[in-house]
Amino acid sequence: CKVCGDVASGFHYGVHACEGCKGFFRRSIQQNIQYKKCLKNENCSIMRMNRNRCQQCRFKKCLSVGMSR
C-alpha cells in the first residue's frame, strides 16, 4: 500500500492501496470528514502498525501519494 506499507489489495482511487486505506479514503471523501488537527505538526509517519493514530496525517498522505476520486 502506497499509504501505509501494508499489502495492497488492488488499484484503488488511483494508487495501489490496502483495504484499510481504501475504506478510510472512501469514507473521508463521501462523508466530507474534517479531521482533528494533528498534534505533531502534521508530520506523522503513517505505517501499517500506527495508521489509525492520526487521521489528519493519514488523509494527507492519501492525497500526497495520488489518491483521488
Rank of each mutant, 00 (worst) to 15 (best):
R48Q: 14
R58C: 15
E19T: 06
C62R: 04
K60M: 10
S64E: 15
C38A: 03
N41T: 12
N50C: 04
V7T: 11
I29F: 11
F24N: 00
R69D: 08
N43A: 13
K36A: 10
Q55M: 06
D6G: 06
I46S: 08
K37A: 13
R26Y: 09
K2P: 03
V7E: 13
Q31S: 10
V3W: 00
R27I: 15
C1W: 02
K61D: 10
A8N: 06
H16F: 11
N32Q: 14
M47I: 07
G5L: 02
F25N: 04
K40F: 13
A8F: 01
I33F: 08
C18V: 02
K61W: 03
R26M: 15
N41L: 08
E42S: 10
R69K: 15
K37N: 15
V15E: 04
A17G: 04
R69A: 15
L63D: 07
C54G: 01
G5D: 04
S9Y: 06
R53A: 15
H16K: 06
N32H: 05
R51S: 11
G20S: 14
M49F: 14
G14P: 01
N50E: 10
G66V: 02
S68V: 06
C1F: 07
N43C: 11
C57Q: 05
V7L: 11
G66M: 05
K40S: 13
H12S: 09
S45M: 14
E19H: 11
C54D: 03
R58D: 05
C1Y: 07
R48M: 15
S68N: 14
F59Y: 09
H12E: 05
H12L: 05
S64H: 07
K40L: 12
V15F: 00
F24Y: 05
N41M: 05
C57E: 03
V15S: 00
I33T: 09
E42F: 02
S64M: 11
V7S: 11
M67L: 01
R27G: 07
V3G: 03
S45P: 10
S64T: 12
Q30W: 04
N41F: 03
N52A: 15
N32K: 08
V65F: 03
K40Y: 15
L63K: 02
A17M: 01
V7I: 13
N50P: 07
V3S: 10
M67P: 02
C57S: 01
R26A: 14
H16T: 11
E42Q: 10
R48P: 15
V65W: 00
M49Q: 14
M47V: 12
R48D: 15
E19I: 02
F25A: 03
M47P: 09
S45R: 09
H12D: 07
H12W: 13
Q56H: 11
V7Y: 10
Q31N: 06
K61A: 08
R51Y: 11
I46Y: 13
Y35N: 05
M47W: 10
S28I: 07
R51A: 10
M47S: 14
Q56R: 11
L63N: 00
A17T: 08
S28D: 07
S28P: 04
L63R: 00
G5A: 04
Q30V: 11
H12R: 03
S68E: 11
R26T: 13
I46L: 09
G14A: 01
K37D: 15
K37V: 08
G14W: 01
K61M: 02
H12F: 06
M49I: 15
S64Y: 06
N32I: 08
